[in-house]
Design a protein around this nucleic acid. Structure first.
Length: 1042
RNA sequence: GCGAGGGUGGCGGAAUUGGCAGACGCGCCAGACUUAGGAUCUGGUCCUGAAAGGAUGGGGGUUCGAGUCCCCCCCCUCGCACCA
């Protein structure tokens, strides 16, 4: 056997020295910039198809990587390396999502600046990532905490601040265009403060003040009251304004307002409300004067309950009064515009954690209603916060799921999260005629079965309609509900609670009075915060009615044999007047029209999705590019003022408190030099926004910055964006399913905003998504249930035993966590076996999308495989290489089969079976005892994406001088793969009896003849009658006998 | 409770459209080479058995033929959780 000089020299050396090989090739790749991928237009760029393969952005935690992270990274790296060999330009970047609460909390606790901690963590995680030999283009690395990165995060925020959602165009548009349309009169302002297209006849109405209409039945005019009652009423109104039971509309009318943002946005009111307490003292005085005037001129009248009633909103008819924008005061104009922005401020109920001094996202709050970090109590509280109008995109976020190739469960989770439901809104008059209750229902066909109504405890009508006899009970119930967190309210889901208000409403389909209750099983945030209860056909209403002895009337006839009580499915209408006999879906169609004709209801679509609470009272996040000016209001900074840098601070600790009512004091408030600035509009003194953005912000668009990370003029150059994003966005996005909803939904939302505004060219960011499964590991417990670390365990024959006590331990598969003492550190594994073995093991464990247990004991299998590969080509002290001059035809055939299988499996992300095929090939070579150089080279190329270091080394041993990274992927010859003869199983009545060898070309008759001639078959058929002969070509023969 | 996914040897897992169940690896057994073997190479390894049989969570069905399709039940994982 003859080998090249280098190879024979190596053949003398000891075995597979992975540590040296891996160090050598990682240095080679870095020095030669092997994986630098130029952009179109750059000098070294060569034309070709593109492939953008993306990993989910890691958060550089202090704990570093665990063995779960590199699973996805290895998969994408195999794909990236494979696609390069297939001639693609491959974009394969990595970066860090480095803002966020953990780094800041650590920094606070240890007295180090979060930037320092973050830097250290990034250095560590990057060291770890580089150990695996991934082929990232490190020149594209980004970090969200880098001012040159967050400058563009701020820029995108400004894009949202400076645009609004145009329902007509069904797209975001620049806010300037809204202002233009408002000034020109193409858009008018409706009563809720929404900009709506002007229609025929609006012009006459617009700008007119409403004539005080006739007194509603039972009501009195203000001037009919005596002075004492007048005074009492006025002070009562003021009290309710101050306690936020009442708000002011933009034109100064006092209105009750549903408890939060959602009700407002869902019922079509875009938050056009002013909280009385936010007005200055003079403004408050003026507001009270205005209300007094409205009372005096009869716009507000007095209902029998003693409450005031706005005659304009009585009767439930949709308000039609339109106003011209140009008629409004400047302040009101500004408010209307601000309330249309995609990024807007609103007072919303939030998770407030006084100990951490910040609001928290729902996912940062545990099921027990405590903070994820630090386990501090969290309270529900209304605060004025930045919001992003993701709800405007509900329908598109839903529809465009059809454009992407994502796992069906992820799409389903997104659909559920958006939570679209179709139904109708129906108005129920109060029995005293003083107002209406609007409800949302998906089953308007069950209206005849509505025997009572329920208001959420926060519903604004509760206070107004409660009778004096019931007041004490209702006040107590509402108070108790308010003090409970959402968690507590839903925790005891078994028992329904509620109280009767004493008031009645009229069921509009049959004019029957039905009682109105208050109960916390009705949520403020969904629909209108009020329901019609149909106990016969709704499980919750059924439970409630049973508990409180409310009437239950059947209106749907279920299929035969099914009890109608509590039947929630579709059926045939009964007890429903003229609608009797209709099937559910037809009934819904007809009654919706019926309701619309009478002006008491209309078809309506509801979403569970809420607008995105976008501010945090923390230091370690992106500052908002926003200035607050007394004169000009909330002002977005001009682009040239970006980035707004985080101020250097000695004390970035947020104000911590045990008092849930204490005002939020964001840490940025302590940076006096920084927060006082000049208004970019008027040049007067102004203050900066003190909140920072939440952690999700930076990760919403990082995949775009990778495309052009150094660009100083733009978040991303259009040419680069168009080339890399192509038609469908990123070609492959791999990450854990824990980001199924939030990250992926938020990114899609930002992307769509950028798309609407013309900054990106695809409607969706991630064309294909793949979720890797979770890697868990074995955890061991002793009798007491105490977890025992691997170091204290003696593993022998039949189980795990405690090293010192000798006690047998129980084994279970768990998520890796410190507490369970089952964390496996990749550094240790790599030190012992090398990165190539690690990569191979993670891919060999099972299907990429399955969750599977880590078992260090199993690693030796793949490690042995690499040693066999090494010895096959290089040999070691004990064994000569199998490399020979003569090609073995059997090996050649196996090689073609391997190339075919590996190619198909990589494309399908079935890496475990691709590796199994490589093992089979090596086993075949050892059996044959020889492999020639050409065969060895092709094998090494196939191995390359999986175990790149050893593959590169062997590539060199075989006499090549360049990296194999851009070598052509080997091809297979289909003729070589095809077998000339096949062994077919022969069954009798489906039971395997024998096997026959036939040529592939054999036809059915020949196959049957061969089967019948087989001695075992012939014997088995003796005395039987053949009924049927079944031949599946290439698969099997089955003979059916009697 | 609702929705989704899954249950195959001692273990991780293979198995186009229904077509030889258990590829590949771990572990285990045997042999070879060895001063040695926790190295390496080769062979064996679902269960029971003499043969015949029996096996893919349990039960039923469709089919010449079912891990795969249909119905019922049990268990596990994930998501949502009073969403009207």
């Amino acid at each position: 056997m003859k080998l090249s000089g280098e190879a024979s020299e190596r053949a003398q050396m000891a075995g597979y020295d992975f540590a040296a090989i891996e160090k050598k090739w990682q240095e080679y790749w870095e020095k030669n910039q092997t994986f630098l991928q130029p952009n179109p237009g750059e000098s070294k760029f060569s034309d070709g198809p593109k492939f953008y393969v993306l990993d989910m952005f890691p958060y550089p935690s202090g704990a570093g990587l665990h063995v779960g992270h590199p699973e996805g990274y290895t998969a994408t790296d195999i794909i990236a390396r494979y696609k390069r060999m297939r001639g693609f330009n491959v974009l394969h970047p990595m970066g860090y999502d480095a803002f966020g609460l953990p780094a800041e909390q650590y920094a606070v606790e240890h007295g180090v600046h979060p930037a320092v901690t973050t830097q250290k963590n990034i250095a560590n995680i990057e060291r770890q990532i580089k150990m695996f030999g991934f082929s990232y283009d490190w020149s594209r690395r980004v970090s969200t905490t880098d001012p040159e990165y967050y400058r563009w995060t701020q820029w995108i925020f400004l894009q949202m601040f400076n645009s609004w959602y145009d329902g007509q165009a069904d797209a975001a548009r620049p806010i300037d265009e809204l202002i233009e349309d408002l000034h020109s009169g193409d858009l008018l302002i409706d009563q809720a403060g929404n900009a709506v297209p002007a229609k025929e006849g609006d012009d006459e109405r617009a700008g007119q003040s409403d004539e005080p209409s006739e007194l509603p039945p039972g009501c009195a005019r203000f001037d009919q009251l005596d002075q004492a009652d007048q005074k009492k009423l006025l002070s009562d109104i003021v009290r309710r304004l101050e306690s936020r039971q009442l708000y002011l509309t933009l034109d100064g009318r006092p209105v009750p307002r549903p408890g939060d943002d959602v009700a407002a946005s869902i019922t079509g009111m875009q938050g056009g409300y002013i909280s009385f307490s936010e007005l200055s003292q003079t403004e408050q005085k003026q507001a009270i004067e205005d209300i007094k005037a409205m009372l005096e001129d009869g716009q507000l009248v007095i209902a029998p309950t003693g409450q005031f009633v706005d005659v304009r909103s009585t009767g439930g008819a949709a308000p039609t009064a339109m106003r011209k924008f140009s008629d409004l005061a400047e302040k009101e104009q500004r408010q209307i515009i601000d309330n249309h922005r995609l990024a807007y401020m609103a007072e919303v109920p939030v998770n407030w954690c006084p100990k951490l001094g910040t609001v928290l996202a729902n996912e940062e709050v545990t099921n027990e209603g405590r903070s994820d970090r630090g386990d501090h109590p969290v309270f529900r509280r209304a605060l004025n916060q930045w919001m992003l109008r993701i709800t405007a995109y509900s329908e598109r976020l839903l529809d465009d799921l059809s454009l992407v190739d994502w796992p069906e469960p992820i799409k389903l989770m997104q659909r559920n999260w958006i939570g679209r439901s179709e139904g109708a809104e129906v108005d129920f008059r109060l029995a005293d005629g003083s107002d209406v209750i609007r409800v949302f229902t998906t089953r308007p066909d069950t209206l005849f079965g509505a025997t009572y109504m329920v208001l959420a405890p926060e519903h604004p009508l509760v206070d107004r309609i409660t009778t004096s006899e019931q007041r004490r009970e209702v006040v107590a119930y509402v108070g108790a509900a308010r003090n409970k967190s959402d968690m507590e309210r839903t925790a005891d889901t078994k028992e329904k609670t509620g109280v009767f208000t004493g008031a009645y409403a009229i069921n509009p389909v049959n004019e029957k009075p039905i009682p109105i209750w208050v109960a916390d099983y009705v949520l403020t945030g969904y629909g209108t915060g009020a329901i019609m209860a149909v106990p016969a056909h709704d499980t919750r209403d059924f439970e409630f009615a049973n508990k409180f002895n409310l009437p239950i009337i059947q209106v749907v006839k279920p299929p035969d044999g099914v009890d109608w009580r509590g039947f929630v499915g579709d059926g045939i209408a009964v007890n429903s007047g003229q609608f009797d006999g209709l099937a559910t879906d037809e009934f819904i169609r007809q009654i919706t029209v019926w309701l619309e004709e009478r002006g008491i209801g209309q078809g309506q679509v509801n979403y569970k999705l809420r607008d995105w609470l976008f501010s945090r009272q923390r230091y370690w996040g992106e500052p908002f590019p926003i200035i607050h000016c007394d004169k000009c209001g909330t002002v977005g900074l001009p682009e040239k003022a970006l980035p707004v840098l985080l101020p250097e601070m000695a004390d970035f600790t947020p104000a911590s408190s045990d008092d849930p009512g204490a005002p939020p004091r964001p840490p940025l408030g302590k940076a006096a030099d920084w927060l006082n600035t000049k208004c970019p509009c008027c040049g007067g003194p102004a203050k900066r926004e003190l909140n920072t953005m939440p952690q999700w912000a930076g990760s919403c668009w990082y995949y775009l910055r990778y495309l052009d990370p150094e660009n100083e003029k733009c978040f991303c150059d259009a040419t680069a964006e168009e080339y890399w994003m192509g038609k469908d966005g990123a070609d492959l996005y791999v990450g854990g399913a824990e980001h199924a909803v939030l990250h992926l939904l938020y990114s899609r939302f930002w992307h769509k905003v950028l798309f609407d505004l013309g900054h990106v060219s695809t409607p969706e960011p991630f064309g294909k998504l793949f979720n890797q499964g979770m890697i868990r590991s074995f955890a061991y417990r002793d009798k007491r249930g105490v977890y025992i670390g691997y170091g204290d365990i003696d593993f022998r024959d039949d189980g795990a035993y405690h090293k010192t006590t000798g006690e047998k331990l129980s084994e279970s598969v768990e998520k890796m966590s410190k507490g369970l003492k089952n964390v496996v550190n990749p550094d240790d594994i790599i030190a012992q076996y090398g990165a190539d073995t690690f990569r191979l093991y993670e891919m060999f464990m099972g299907p990429l999308d399955a969750s599977k247990p880590w078992n260090t004991r199993d690693i030796s299998g793949v490690h042995r495989f690499l040693q066999r590969v090494w010895r096959m080509i290089v040999g070691d002290e004990d064994q000569k290489p199998l490399l020979s001059q003569a090609a073995d035809p059997a090996v050649e055939k196996e090689l073609h089969k391997l190339i075919k299988k590996a190619s198909e499996d990589i494309e399908a992300m079935k890496f475990n079976t691709a590796i199994a095929a490589m093992m089979e090939f090596i086993n075949a070579v050892y059996r044959a005892g020889a492999i020639d150089r050409g065969q060895a080279e092709r094998f090494v190329l196939v191995l390359g994406p999986f175990a790149p270091h050893v593959a590169e080394e062997l590539w060199h041993v075989l006499g090549n001088t360049d990296s194999l990274a851009y070598e052509d992927w080997p091809r297979f010859n289909p003729a070589m793969v095809a077998e000339s003869a096949v062994e077919l199983p022969v069954q009798i009545n489906g039971k395997l009896r024998s096997r026959i060898n036939v040529p592939v070309s054999a036809d059915q008759e020949e196959i049957v003849k061969a089967a019948l001639d087989d001695p075992k078959i012939a014997a088995a058929l003796e005395g039987k009658q053949i009924v049927k002969k079944i031949v599946v070509p290439g698969k099997m023969v089955n003979i059916v006998v009697k």
